[in-house]
């Protein structure tokens, strides 16, 4: 537990540092808000004339996108910079500094690189999600709300996995791991529309190879009570668990990666 309070102290110091450039910080928040907000608008613009895709209404499609975005903006502050900068630390040899400190190196990296500039996107994605759920006639019962929370936790885990697998690859290949993670995250954007629009092969790819559909599509089928043709009827309910398992695998991979690590600097 002592670890945790150190993490908070370090993250707080980080906030203080970022707030030193206050104007810059708030401009950043505003621009990120505009930029990510515009992505929702484009989905709306494309779908507006059709009133939705197949059996999915516009708010229901927005729910898919909002789950994806909210998960990303909740995982990003922890891992975007910490995992992204790992390559530099390995190349420069400065990772050794994290290895000799009395906190787990991953925790230390996260705390020191914690980013506060995601806050505007987090708030927006959460607000959009609630509005879109309401407009889709979401039933705010305890069971569904708990499942929604589980879905978001699963989403965060899966995004964490994409960051961590990139970082773990860096221990082996030195560079290129970050790009690998970025590529997976790009692919995941294919699930911003219901995957039922794709042929079966692509659906299977997004379920079993890069299980992005487990992040939003399958849970949404349950959350919104959609009658969808599924590869297996249990998919909606087990999806968040699979994603959480992947998150845990990501952390294990990072530990494994640390074992491979050989310091290059000195």
């Amino acid at each position: 537990m002592g670890n945790l309070s150190t993490v908070f102290k370090l993250a707080y110091l980080n906030l203080r540092t970022q707030m030193e450039y206050r104007v810059s910080f708030f401009i950043w928040l505003g621009i990120k808000l505009l930029s990510y907000g515009s992505e929702y608008l484009i989905v709306w613009m494309i779908l507006d004339r059709f009133k939705g895709i197949g059996t999915w209404s516009i708010p229901e499609v927005i729910v898919l996108w909002a789950i994806l975005q909210l998960s990303y903006t909740l995982a990003g502050p922890f891992l975007f910079h910490s995992a992204g900068r790992l390559e530099q630390h390995i190349v420069k040899g400065s990772l050794d500094y994290f290895l000799v400190q009395p906190i787990h190196p991953l925790v230390n990296l996260i705390a020191r690189n914690f980013s506060w500039t995601y806050s505007s996107q987090q708030v927006m994605s959460a607000v959009v999600l609630v509005i879109a759920l309401n407009a889709s006639g979401f039933d705010w019962s305890l069971a569904r709300v708990s499942f929604l929370v589980l879905t978001i936790l699963g989403g965060i885990s899966f995004y964490a996995f994409t960051f961590l697998i990139g970082a773990s690859l860096n221990f082996r290949m030195i560079s290129g791991g970050r790009e690998f993670g970025i590529n997976i995250r790009w692919l995941m954007e294919m699930t911003q529309y219901p995957i039922s629009i794709y042929p079966k092969q692509i659906q299977a790819f997004l379920t079993f190879v890069v299980p992005a559909a487990m992040l939003n599509y399958y849970p949404a089928v349950y959350l919104l009570d959609k009658s969808a043709e599924l590869l297996h009827p249990s998919l909606p309910l087990i999806s968040p668990l699979v994603e959480i398992a992947l998150g845990i695998i990501g952390v294990r991979l990072f530990w494994k990666g640390l074992d491979w690590y050989q310091s290059g600097g000195g």
Partner: peptide, 10 residues
């Protein structure tokens, strides 16, 4: 392909 299938569906 994503965009192609999107427009096919729409």
């Amino acid at each position: 392909l994503m965009q192609v299938y999107l427009w096919k569906a729409l």
